[in-house]
Amino acid sequence: MRVIDMFCGCGGISWGFKRAGFTILAGIDNNEHALATYKLNFPEAKVFNGDISKLDPFEVMNDLNIKPGELECLVGGPPCQGFSKNVPAKNRFFEDERNLLVTHYLRFVEAFRPKMVLMENVAELAQAYQQGYTEIILGKLSELGYYAEYDRLLAAEYGVPQMRRRAFFLATMSGTSNLFPSPSHGEGNKKYDLFNLDIAPFVTVWDAISDLPSITHEGGAHVMPYPSEPLTYYQILMRPDNNQLLHNHIARKLTHVQYSRIASIKEGQGFNDLPEELKPKSGYSGAYGRLWRDKPAPTITCWVFHPGSGRFSHPLDTRVITIREAARIQSFDDSFVFTGSYNEQARQVGNAVPPLLAKKIALQFKAVLEGACISQ
């Protein structure tokens, strides 16, 4: 079961599909730094570095020696900055150039005619312009012969320790329904029991990172040993293949003012709790916030390296979280290694689809594809 990942970035969707047993055939993007990480982690895949709006899908197919209708899965998350909630409503336009990559993705779907399609985007896309883009996407997929569904998924409901919500469009040529996996996690204190259908409690920040070394700001190393065995089930998932060494666990050096601000507040506190003499002239409640140990994290963004840009500070240590801690919260397991500068790695992590969520969708796709094979 082969996958081509468009707008692949560092490979969040690809990693989830790979962990579900799929073969990653190729990744396509135009970000050299993200593609360097992709190449490192997917040595089996061919990498295309180029502007997708100018790329000929038939040339890609010829290069990969596949024909229309042969590919099992086309996946990707076309960037759509024009839909972001960070863009004021008055500045959002239906035909914003930043939103047109969605149509180029659909152009590739039309050419490849894959058996299944996954498209991910910011949650705002689903409702944007009176659901105008949703209607375009579903209408085009239907016109091409696909059965398509869309939904806004909360990553925490699929075992990711993060309250990240994104829109997903899933489609199949097989005509089946139920393309979305059922949530496995939720609020509450129910214990997960393999012998019944109880929903597990959300995975928390501490479930995700408590086995990682405590370090100071400016501390850590590119490669270092683990201080202990895994302490939670989630940590076991994050340490596959008997990993012996930890990568990307370096804390960014803070300025004196940044350090003083984080040092002045406790776990779960943020901007509003800063002493008046340290409080910036303006900001929002999450700025300079420390994470809670007993809750999932808020959305990890590409600004995770900057304490004033969100709730990205460690619950106990006086520092922002490391790239590895951010990757754990995104559900990249420790076998996945990031390359590039600190800021480049932060952008790669923040822009990615959580691999564990992608894996659960991939397993659902796998069941659909296997069912289609059996029925034929």
Rank of each mutant, 00 (worst) to 15 (best):
C8Y: 09
G9D: 15
G9F: 15
I13C: 13
K18W: 15
L25E: 12
N31P: 14
E44G: 06
D56L: 12
E59M: 08
M61L: 05
I66T: 07
E72Q: 07
G76R: 02
G77T: 03
K85C: 07
F94T: 00
D96M: 04
E97M: 14
E97Q: 11
N99C: 15
N99K: 08
T103L: 13
Y105H: 06
A111E: 06
F112H: 06
L118K: 06
N121V: 09
Y129G: 02
G132K: 10
I137C: 04
G139Y: 07
G145M: 07
E157S: 11
S174H: 13
S182T: 08
P183H: 02
S184I: 11
G188D: 06
N189L: 02
K191C: 00
Y192I: 13
L197I: 00
W206N: 06
D207W: 11
I215E: 02
P227W: 01
P227M: 01
P227V: 03
Y233C: 01
M238Y: 08
M238C: 12
R239M: 06
N243G: 09
L246P: 00
N248L: 11
V257K: 04
Q258C: 05
Y259L: 05
S264V: 13
K266R: 12
G268E: 09
G270P: 10
D273W: 13
K279I: 04
P280C: 08
R293M: 12
P307Q: 12
S309F: 03
G310N: 09
H314I: 07
P315R: 00
V320F: 01
I321K: 02
I323Y: 00
R324E: 01
A327C: 03
I329K: 02
S331E: 01
S335A: 15
S335Q: 14
F336L: 02
V349Y: 07
G350S: 10
V353F: 02
P354R: 06
P354C: 03
P355G: 07
Q364V: 01
F365Y: 14
E370G: 12
